[in-house]
């Protein structure tokens, strides 16, 4: 059995620093197990948010060696022997304590999105080909790793102007829904800040559910925005067909 050298961020709103721990590594161990070992054997007051340990609840998001990751999906054996493993909280959101950040801003964004609005005469029969695109978006576990890595929120701190990739996915899931008739394009253009995304695809890279956030959600939304705001020919045809 080998030992892993870990440096875990300890601190709260008044200050903090990395603290070094030595953790024995067992077969199949993940970073969250190591954090639990520290809690159990060394520092019982280490704060960490977790729930399922199966990459389905999206609670144990953190930055492991600088990469936004789920701790329960980061295998200890993927680190080289002797490599120091840094574990720190998500940088994009306000720190509460140790590895726990306040992600409530995300829930506020969710409330701003017009909810599912079915057609009045909806027949409630859907075919697989119509819902397949939307089903991909429903895989989201709201771990907010995409929000954390998005440079618009992370580097530029434009939380006042951009709702972030997670909520682009939510808007896409509603806009592409065959039974929905709500229009969220004006919101997306004026308030959601779709223009802030420069499609550098980091959100897709970190998504633990492998949702193609940029290609399947954000870019199609950008194209719909082009239809409504920047392409007079498309707007003309859209107007004609919607009248009919």
């Amino acid at each position: 059995m080998r030992n892993a050298q870990m440096r875990v961020f300890r601190g709260d709103a008044t200050g903090g620093d990395f603290k070094e721990y030595t953790v024995p590594v067992e077969d199949g161990m993940v970073v969250l197990d190591a954090i639990h070992y520290i809690q159990r054997e060394i520092d019982p007051d280490l704060a960490v948010r977790w729930n399922c340990k199966a990459a389905k609840c999206g609670s144990c998001s953190a930055e492991v060696n600088g990469r936004p990751s789920l701790m329960c999906k980061s295998r200890m054996e993927s680190f080289a022997e002797g490599e120091i493993i840094f574990v720190e909280p998500l940088r994009t959101f306000p720190l509460m304590r140790d590895l726990v950040t306040d992600v409530s801003w995300n829930y506020e964004q969710n409330k701003r999105i017009k909810p599912f609005t079915p057609k009045e005469d909806a027949k409630w029969v859907m075919y697989q080909e119509d819902v397949e695109r939307v089903q991909e978006f429903r895989k989201c576990i709201e771990c907010f790793l995409c929000q954390d890595v998005c440079h618009v929120l992370r580097d530029h701190d434009r939380k006042d102007a951009f709702i972030g990739p997670r909520f682009m996915v939510r808007v896409a899931s509603l806009e592409m829904h065959p039974l929905d008739q709500g229009d969220r394009m004006k919101f997306l253009h004026d308030e959601g800040g779709v223009g802030f995304c420069n499609i550098t695809k980091c959100c897709s890279e970190v998504c633990p559910e492998d949702i193609h956030i940029t290609d399947n959600a954000i870019i199609p939304l950008k194209e719909r925005i082009v239809d409504d705001y920047y392409d007079p020919i498309a707007k003309f045809f859209k107007t004609i067909f919607s009248k009919n």
Partner: peptide
């Protein structure tokens, strides 16, 4: 870039 970043919106 800092807060003034506006991506493809302007």
């Amino acid at each position: 870039g800092g807060y003034k970043y506006c991506g493809e919106s302007k």
